[in-house]
């Protein structure tokens, strides 16, 4: 009902929206920023690959260990004047009696000889040679634990000098040592690369501080505290780090995914079984991918924090 707003307001009501620019207070020098982002990307890429490789080794080792520790082997050596077939049957019987054993399988003479082929060649007549015979013993698992020392003692008692039990303990411990060493090296390399990233950022921040001395001075004069200025630098470098880290981690992810895809391709090929036997599944678990992403994030956080600390020290 009231008269419409015919009188124009004295003040222009709407201010130009384009004012909202909020440009970073620390100017970004294009070429230096790009160089730093590239360095961070490369370092992140290397660290991420390293972490991915360590993760593959660790998970493959775990796979092998899981498979191998489900089995023990009884070896029956032929001796002069001994009936090897009878010895094998006796050993199988002993193993079957023992608690916690799910099953046994004695490798036949030809199977045992076949196992030696890769080393001795296939044209050889091994009939004359005393080839040891193997019995694989599957363990029932955690529910009914097998008493391997007891079984070993009974084998030694019944077939002294001829039968021995191999629970792969030595091999397993070596495998686990190797896997741990590999993972340790991986962690060490990742740490080194992160330190290198930190150093690169320190130098870049010092350069940016020197190049922006005038800006820092003006910021001080208009009432910006050291902390505020350090935060501005941190924000700028964190963004750079995020960009570099994303590119590096992305490239590493792509490479790992490609490797996994190629591995799957090979496994489908005729030679696949051997490759799988040699390298394990070459599965890259979600943990592998996650650790790559995590390294990208850590690299950007390191970048931000290091630049902030550098500025604080510089201003103090």
């Amino acid at each position: 009902m009231s008269a419409g707003p015919e009188r124009a307001p004295a003040e222009p009501a709407a201010l130009p929206q384009s004012l909202r620019r909020n440009a970073p207070l620390v100017p970004t020098d294009g070429s230096a920023s790009r160089a730093l982002a590239a360095v961070i990307a490369i370092l992140t890429f290397l660290a991420a690959l390293c972490a991915g490789a360590a993760e593959i080794v660790a998970s493959s080792a775990a796979q092998w260990q899981g498979a191998v520790s489900q089995e023990v082997t009884i070896q029956v050596r032929p001796g002069p004047g001994r009936d090897t077939e009878a010895d094998v049957a006796r050993a199988v019987a002993l193993a079957k009696e023992a608690p916690g054993i799910a099953g046994t399988r004695a490798l036949s003479k030809t199977e045992s000889e076949h196992l030696l082929e890769p080393w001795l060649g296939s044209g050889l007549d091994l009939g004359e040679l005393p080839v040891p015979r193997l019995i694989t013993v599957r363990l029932a698992g955690a529910g009914t634990p097998a008493d391997l020392p007891a079984l070993r003692a009974r084998l030694a008692e019944a077939l002294p000098g001829a039968a021995s039990l191999d629970d792969h303990a030595l091999w397993l411990s070596r495998l686990s040592t190797m896997a741990h060493t590999f993972v340790g090296i991986g962690v060490g390399v990742v740490a080194l690369v992160l330190v290198a990233t930190g150093l690169a950022v320190t130098f870049a921040t010092r350069g940016a501080m020197a190049g922006n001395r005038e800006v820092v001075e003006v910021l001080h004069f208009v009432g910006a505290g050291d902390d505020y200025i350090a935060r501005e630098f941190q924000r700028r470098f964190f963004r750079l780090g995020l960009r570099g880290g994303a590119v590096g981690a992305g490239a590493a992810l792509a490479l790992l995914a490609l490797a996994a895809w190629l591995a799957r391709l090979w496994r489908a090929s005729p030679a696949g079984d051997e490759i799988e036997a040699l390298f394990g599944g070459f599965e890259i678990s979600w943990r592998g991918y996650a650790s790559v992403v995590l390294i990208g994030v850590i690299a950007s956080v390191v970048t931000g924090v290091v630049s902030r600390l550098t500025v604080r020290r510089f201003l103090a």
């Binding site: 620019r21 909020n22 440009a23 207070l25 100017p27 001075e217 009432g223």
Partner: peptide, 28 residues
Amino acid sequence: RLLDHLTTYENVALPLRVQGRAETSYRA
């Protein structure tokens, strides 16, 4: 001593911005 990478508006607003004030609070 104006900052060359900031607009005139941003330069003038600088003392308020470094106090942590929101841009909308001082634009007018």
